[in-house]
């Protein structure tokens, strides 16, 4: 979906998504890091379980909500990526259904 400009600067940063290792660059937001890694879906909605991905990249749509280092519902597009971040996708409706069962 996105590729890095050859002239773009930035230090490589490592992170995990649902336990799998990835890397991106310093200066990336968490949402940009995911998109740069080719990951367009970051959560399932709590209403229907529909897949969603980053949409506005400026903090207004709340589509890029992810769990970062154990804290849920963080706006990935507003949080700068840092080394070693543990990012998890949010499985809204499924998680809720599991707890009910």
């Amino acid at each position: 979906m996105f590729r890095r400009l050859p002239e773009a600067r930035g230090e490589p940063l490592n992170f995990t998504l649902d336990g799998k290792p990835f890397s991106a660059r310093s200066g990336d937001s968490v949402a940009a890091a995911l998109l740069a890694a080719g990951i367009e879906t970051c959560r399932a909605t709590p209403v229907s379980g529909a897949p969603r991905g980053p949409y506005c990249m400026m903090g207004v749509c709340f589509e890029c909500l992810v769990t970062i280092d154990g804290v849920g519902n963080r706006q990935g597009c507003l949080i700068p990526l840092s080394e070693g971040m543990r990012i998890e996708t949010q499985q809204g409706a499924r998680a809720i259904a599991q707890e009910v069962a």
Binding site: P46, N73, G92, I96, Q98, E99, V100
Partner: peptide, 10 residues
């Protein structure tokens, strides 16, 4: 009053 996001049922 205040209200939270949708959370797992508990």
């Amino acid at each position: 009053l205040m209200i939270t996001e949708r959370r797992p049922h508990f």
